[in-house]
Amino acid sequence: MITEIGESIIVAAVFRDNSITPRSFLWRRRRYRVNKVHGHYHYFKGVYRQNCYSLSCETADIFEVSFDAEDMSWRLERVHVEG
């Protein structure tokens, strides 16, 4: 099941070797530690690069988060839940 979220989140990420890797995020007052980045890609909105990630944390759920280089903001776009 897919739930569209579209909310701002606070992310701790590592910027290294021209790449950004999210390590944990805070959503609705709960901290999620990123266990694995399953996939990532980027595209451009105007001149601003948008980075998108598929992440899994402690549960089997998959979180899709994005980073907007225009205002350096992170968003939780949607959550894929088993079932």
């Binding site: 399953h38 996939g39 598929s54 089997a60 894929h80």
Partner: peptide, 10 residues
């Protein structure tokens, strides 16, 4: 396949 790779639950 890209979606299954990015969402292992599928």
């Amino acid at each position: 396949s890209v979606e299954q790779r990015d969402h292992p639950i599928y």
